[in-house]
Amino acid sequence: MSNSEELERALARYVGAEIGPPAVGPDLVNAPMVRHWCEILGDANPVYTDPDVAARSVHGGLVAPPTMLQVWTMAGVALAGGGGPAADLQQELHALLSEHGYTSVVATNCEQVYDRYLRPDDRVTATTVIEAISPEKTTGLGTGRFIDTRTTYRDAKGERVAWMTFRVLKFKPAQPAQAASPAAAPAKPRRLRPLRSHDNDWWWQGVARGDLLIQRCAECGTLRHPPRPMCGACQSLRWDSVAASGRGVVYSHVVMHHPPIPGYGFPLAVALVELEEGTRIVSNVVGCAPDAVRIGMPVQLEMQDVDEELRLPLFRPVSGAAEEAR
C-alpha cells in the first residue's frame, strides 16, 4: 500500500466526526466584551452598548453583535500558542497533514447563519463536525486539501442560535525554500536599498564587482560624484569611469544616535570621505569606535557585503590612524 493511499484512508476516518466534546464558552455573553469588540471594530450601533437606547429598540434590551459569534467559544491564547499535544480531532487532522508535507494553512471561506441575537448572560456552546476533506488540489499558494467544518452554536437550553461553515486550505507551500529566503523572513531588519536607475545602475554594478567607480567626462576629463548624465563643466553627454584607488581622508563626519533606525546598528559613524582622486562620497567608517573618527583621518576602502544582497563601499581607518586621532 502506497503512502498516499495510507493517507487517504487515514483522512477518511475524520470525515463526519465531531472534533470533540462541545466547546463551552468560558464567559457568559457580557457587556464588557461586547463593548471592547465594538470599539476595536468601530461598530457604533448603540443597541450593543447603550442600555437605554437598546431598551427602546426592537430588541427591548442589549444584544451582542451577531458577527461576534466565534468570540464566545473560541480558545484564545491557547489556540494561538499551539505546539502542545492535539486537543481535539481537528488539531490532530492538521498535525497529520503537516507530517505529510502540508505544512501551511490558510482560511478561505466562512459563512455564518444566525437564528437569533445573543443577549447578555447567554451561555454559548459549540459543536464542530468535520464535513469534508477534498482530494489534493493545486492553487496559487501551493498544493493542498480543503477541509470543511460545520459548527453549531446552542444556548443553555440546547436550542440552536447560529451555525457556521468554515473552510481552510492545508497545503504544501509552492516554494518551500521561500521561508528561508530573506524576503519572507520577517526576522532581521536590513539597511534600506539604494534605488537603481539608468543614471546610477552602472555604479552599483561596479560595487558588485568590487570596484569603487568615479564617473569621468569623456570630453574634458572632469571627475564627478554622485553620477549624473551630463558634464556640468562642458555639457558633454559622453562619459566613462575610473576605478578609485580607495585611499581617502575624512572630510567631515557624524555619529547617528537618535532616532534609532533598524538595520544599521547605532551609534553609527557616517563620514564624508574625500578620495585622493578629488571627489567625495558619503559612507560609513568601520573598524574603529564611532566617536574616534576625526576630520583628516586617512581611510581605506573596504567592500563589505552588509547582507546577502547588498554590497557597500565602506571605509576603514588606515592602521594606526584611529589611535593617533585619539
Binding site: R191, L192, R193, P194, L195, R196, S197, D199, N200, P226, Y251, S252, H253, V254, M256, P259, I261, Y264, F266, L268, V270, L272, I281, V282, S283, N284, I295, V306, L310, L312
Partner: peptide, 29 residues
C-alpha cells in the same frame, strides 16, 4: 528624488539632523 537619497540611505544618513550635522562638524572644525 529617491535616486538622490539613495546615495545616503544605505549608510544610514537618513534624517534632517544628520545632514545638518555633517556640515556642522566641518564648520566647527
Amino acid at each position: 528624488d529617491l535616486i538622490h537619497w539613495s546615495w545616503y540611505l544605505p549608510y544610514g544618513l537618513l534624517t534632517p539632523a544628520s545632514w545638518v550635522a555633517m556640515f556642522t562638524q566641518r564648520y566647527l572644525h
